[in-house]
Design a protein around this nucleic acid. Structure first.
Lengths: 120, 120
DNA sequence: TAAACACATGAACAACTATTCATATGAAAG
DNA sequence: CTTTCATATGAATAGTTGTTCATGTGTTTA
């Protein structure tokens, strides 16, 4: 006759205490892990991935990106703001047009590593 | 007096034709870029990031992960299925318990690269 | 066989997000 | 100053997603 149905335990722990200790030491702080997930979230959209790939080749203005990706200027601009907030791209203004470019070398490294996993 | 308000052009193109050609050549196929975004989407959730970090230390069963992260068994199991489908983790059964572990070395490399960007 | 345990899974709901539409800003040209 | 062009942005909407709850599956033990 079961007394409670609290499923929050599996015979104490299957792993040993030393592993739990190692985990608790090596685990980065929650805030760092949150930021890390936020970063990957930026790469988790194919429109943004395409924009970054374009910027691998050359700096570009919003309208060029929109044309190359066959999307509206508004959609691209919104995504560029997202990329800007995450410090993945930077921009410079030249008259009426704004040129965007990669902010960081890490961007390329991260995408290349992901590619290696995908292309298997 | 404006004749049309079609915003789908910016004086042909600001970039030059050679850049457009380079882009079209170097750009991977849409399907690849989609898969790449899907991969990063997996890393774009702090629960999954935490699970992967735990598995850096040791293989673990579902209940242990749930306890360490103070989350329900169901939530962890759902996320492990996501990680399994993406081939980021593998599992082995030992009696009643199922042990999960990292499937690939790329996982660690990708996360480490992301960390470098975040920890600045 | 029946009960208990570890895990998986379907449905439902809330939270988030990418795009569209309409409009605003800012710079250059007339 | 007014118009035009390039870009930015707020609101709205449709689609996606993470967690919970309830329940199902598979394994071990009594």
């Amino acid at each position: 006759m079961p007394e409670d149905n609290n499923a929050e335990r599996c015979e104490l722990m299957h792993v040993h205490q030393d592993i739990v200790d190692r985990v608790n030491q090596q685990m980065p702080e929650d805030e760092i892990l949150f930021d890390l997930a936020e970063l990957f979230k930026i790469f988790g959209d194919s429109t943004r991935i395409k924009i970054l790939y374009l910027l691998f080749e050359s700096e570009m203005c919003v309208c060029d990106i929109a044309q190359l990706l066959k999307m509206t200027q508004s959609a691209i601009s919104h995504q560029l703001q997202v990329l800007k907030k995450s410090k993945l791209v930077k921009y410079r203004r030249d008259g009426k047009t704004v040129f965007y470019s990669l902010a960081d070398g890490h961007v390329r490294t991260i995408i290349d590593q992901g590619m290696e996993h995908v292309a298997e």
